[in-house]
């Protein structure tokens, strides 16, 4: 897919596949092209001449109405009609997706119960909190029982209680066999729920891996953090510096970025034993997905530095 806006390339010849039942996360800084990608996939933007979106081998541009019925879309910001009640919004969604009145009634009752919105059915959408609005969005997206769910930063700005509800529902939907595409800024969320992650920057895909592989492939695999009991002498510090990629923090606290943590722990042990130095605290930190993300974005050749939120 490619998408240009006048002299701006928003999405630049990207290509990816999502398997049935998979949760694919799209990560990227602001302006990376994540939302444009979703808008292309869901038919909000028309595809450019050589762009193709195929769903179960069918071309989106050839049978848009049929294929759009397979999608359930949850936006970052609620797009329900603010002057409609919860029930009116759900009824409208159901009709637009071609459901019968009986089916709408049945599905509405099931979903309102599942998302704990039953007592809000006659409340106007504009009176709902952000968390409740997001739950309504999920109800609207699931009303027609789509096989593919597209979630654009679904937990952004929600309170912890709503975040837990939304995340649990996403995992439950995966267990039901739904294919899920999710964009997020939240690395912890991506690590927890995604089977595979695409990292986008400047309209390009710069990584396409499982969360575990992304971290494994990243050279800075671990960080050793330790605190010395006594202040080191100048020579001792020089010695440590020659052994490790060392960063001293305050109060005798040191941080070592390690590509081979087991070997480095052994060297550190020898050094401490030889110099009769004791440590009061020691931590081995695994590289987080966040560090991988920042490293990849920063290394992307055209990065300007201010794109990470």
């Amino acid at each position: 897919m490619t998408k240009n806006f006048e002299d701006l390339i928003a999405v630049n010849h990207i290509s990816f596949r999502i398997e049935e039942g998979e949760i694919l996360g799209i990560l990227g800084p602001n302006g990376a092209g994540k939302t444009t990608t979703i808008r292309l996939l869901t038919g909000v933007f028309e595809l450019e001449e050589k762009s193709r979106v195929k769903i179960y081998s069918e071309d989106l541009t050839k049978s848009p109405k049929k294929l759009k019925k397979l999608f359930g879309i949850v936006p970052e910001i609620s797009n329900a009609y603010s002057d409609y009640t919860v029930l009116q919004n759900l009824n409208f969604s159901g009709t637009i997706y071609g459901l019968s009145k009986t089916k709408i009634k049945e599905r509405v009752n099931t979903l309102l119960e599942r998302f704990e919105l039953g007592d809000k059915r006659y409340a106007k959408t504009k009176t709902l909190s952000k968390g409740l609005k997001q739950r309504l969005n999920l109800c609207m997206a699931l009303l027609h029982q789509p096989s593919i769910l597209i979630l654009d930063e679904p937990t952004s700005g929600l309170d912890p209680f709503s975040v837990t509800i939304v995340r649990n529902q996403i995992l439950e939907l995966k267990n039901e066999g739904k294919t899920i595409l999710i964009t997020t800024h939240n690395m912890q969320e991506a690590q927890q729920i995604c089977d595979r992650i695409l990292i986008m920057n400047r309209g390009n895909i710069i990584a396409d891996e499982t969360p575990d592989n992304l971290r494994k492939n990243f050279k800075q695999t671990s960080t050793l953090v330790f605190k010395m009991q006594d202040t080191l002498s100048y020579e001792q510090k020089e010695k440590l510096n020659s052994m490790f990629n060392l960063k001293e923090e305050n109060n005798n606290l040191f941080r070592v970025i390690s590509e081979n943590p087991l070997e480095d722990i052994s060297y550190l042990y020898d050094f401490l034993k030889k110099n009769k130095i004791q440590i009061t605290d020691f931590k081995l930190l695994e590289t987080s997905l966040e560090e991988v993300f920042i490293h990849l974005i920063k290394n992307d050749s055209k990065f300007t530095g201010d794109d990470i939120r």
């Binding site: 808008r39 869901t42 038919g43 909000v44 848009p64 109405k65 049929k66 759009k68 019925k69 999608f71 879309i73 936006p75 910001i77 609620s78 797009n79 329900a80 009609y81 603010s82 969604s93 637009i96 997706y97 071609g98």
Partner: peptide, 14 residues
């Protein structure tokens, strides 16, 4: 402004 137009365009509505 209310993003409902985007919702309609992504629904099976031409």
């Amino acid at each position: 402004r209310e993003k409902s137009l985007e919702r309609l365009l992504s629904a099976p509505v031409s």
